[in-house]
Amino acid sequence: MKPLFNRGTSATARLALTVPLSLSLLVADLHYPQLDLLRSTLSVVVFPLYYLAALPARLGETLEGRLADEKQLRLNNAQLHNDNLILQAQLQKYAALEAENQRLRNLLGSAFKVGERVLIAELLEVDLDPYRQQVLVDKGENAGVFIGQPVLDAQAVMGQVIRTNPLTATVLLITDAAHSLPVQVNRNGLRAIATGTGIINQLNLLHLPKKADIRPGDLLVTSGLGGVFPPGYPVARVTEVRAESGERFATVIAEPTARLERSHEVLLVWSAPSTSPSLLPDTNTPAVSSTNPPAATTTTP
């Protein structure tokens, strides 16, 4: 027999339990990293869900691949061949420049090392919360992905890994309101902090004086100062510079060069250890080398 009227008190008691619990979870998730263990455990449970959600998109892709006719494939192939030739020609020039750069840096005595290891990962086709700028990739701890790892696409910096579990990793995009990265203007080396706005194609440059030498069209590259992103990767292009009276700093808006909402493949980067010259003896090499993945990765020359 179902009781008719004895729900009230028990529901209230339950609410009195769940509300403080969720509030403490919120505070803990905001301020303490220990909770990541709980989240990564639960997200392993959720993984089949992601797999199922991504299935239609993936099936469509395979079907498209099967149904593409020969002529189309030939055309594609020719196009890719051409692209490859052009890229290789550019690479030759780049290799020479890199060697020269290295030689000059050696002359200066700075311990700068180019050459980073990358791993290609695919985005999982699932829609996460539309009010945060984050994406899910199909490589996790099993592939050696670690928290704080920089993520690039073919054009530029996309973001960094904020959560991992054995199978997947969550990437916070540079346009999320909680993300900032140190950049410099490629033209003159002016340093700034690029902060996300929560809008997919907009970055703000904070605390730049009104007379700073920056103008629309300037390319921003990573400065490598934060220690997370390797230096010299393109980030964004300045679209708007305003000096409003009443504001203490200039309003500088930039548009990311990475195709944040369209990229399908991303590159996970392992920076070469100790990229910046240090005055201290080399005792604190980053823990990056211990988390390097096994041999199934490609290496840039």
Binding site: T18, V19, S22, L26, D29, L30, L38, V46, L136
Partner: peptide, 29 residues
């Protein structure tokens, strides 16, 4: 009831990548 709501909110937080507890709180209320 409330416990189911709380737990489903938690699962949604994990799935959608929101702050842990965001939907747990709103769903339990």
């Amino acid at each position: 009831g409330v416990f189911w709501s709380f737990f489903m909110g938690l699962m949604l937080d994990v799935t959608a990548g929101t702050l842990l507890g965001q939907h747990a709180l709103s769903f339990s209320i």
